[in-house]
Design a protein around this nucleic acid. Structure first.
Lengths: 143, 143
DNA sequence: CTGCCATTTCAAGTCAACTTGAGGTCAAGC
DNA sequence: GCTTGACCTCAAGTTGACTTGAAATGGCAG
């Protein structure tokens, strides 16, 4: 079995060695052994780091991410909890969509003052106000 | 003109007074005057705070947010910069969608080990890999 | 065997975004 | 007129997520 040095993991994942050590320290990832002093990682850690990166993008703390994907890297949570997390992400997507639309609107709207533009006010008010709008629905293929 | 005390702004926006003072300090919002010692805010600040909240959800720093919506609260950036920000948000939405799909998949996939499930690996690998997939396109109504 | 260089540990530092606390002010209600 | 409660300022503290630096280690190429 070919293991990876921390430097290789860093190179392939874009995560710095210091961050990788920190992740290991807080139990977010783990190395399988040592070669001398050096941590050895299995290549699956790259997948985990991808997952972690996604979680960070979604604004979750490392603690929350650790809660989603245990140290093995795999979620071991009840179905409904996972779906709740997914729902939270969907809500976040809604807000991002509102911000994006607001930005695009502002870029293109010729009105002199946006504060008076009803479209602008409506877009901005979309945040927080849960809408029933359908967002980017895409099923996942059956495994 | 009826102005708002910091406490009222806090109550209506959900942002703590200390945070509001901090936002003013860094020039993200501004109060219009004082009533004795007390800051007075115009109600538009609530809209601004909504915008700020959206920006935070999107993972922008307060500095970046301040860059988007100047102290007047309104974006005063060139069209293309605004569209670039919007594009960045779209990319973020893509990643969030991948994470959400991954979570839902894991919740429902009966496979014993996800690491070996090709669907799982494909979903995870979606992050970082820019896809040409169309995402949640929704135009904004003309103002 | 000798260097070299990527690693190691550990403590301390940094940055953003606030929060907390102490001590002070003031307008409004009694 | 006095009290009260919501506000004020300013300095310092906190949390999360790392980074940095110093001093040590150890495998491998020459």
């Amino acid at each position: 079995m070919k293991f990876l040095d921390i430097g290789e993991v860093a190179a392939q994942s874009g995560v710095k060695p210091s961050a990788l050590r920190y992740y290991e320290e807080i139990g977010l990832i783990s190395s399988v052994s040592r070669h001398g002093l050096r941590r050895q990682f299995v290549s699956e850690v790259l997948l985990q780091l991808n997952l972690i990166a996604m979680g960070k993008t979604a604004g979750f703390s490392l603690d929350e991410i650790a809660g989603m994907f245990g140290r093995n890297g795999m979620p071991d949570l009840p179905r409904d909890v996972l779906h709740a997390k997914a729902d939270a992400i969907d809500r976040k997507i809604l807000e991002l969509s509102a911000l994006r639309d607001t930005l695009r609107h502002v870029a293109d709207c010729p009105a002199p003052s946006h504060m008076e533009c009803p479209t602008f006010r409506r877009l901005v008010s979309l945040a927080g106000t849960p809408r029933k709008t359908k967002v980017f629905k895409r099923g996942f293929p059956s495994s």
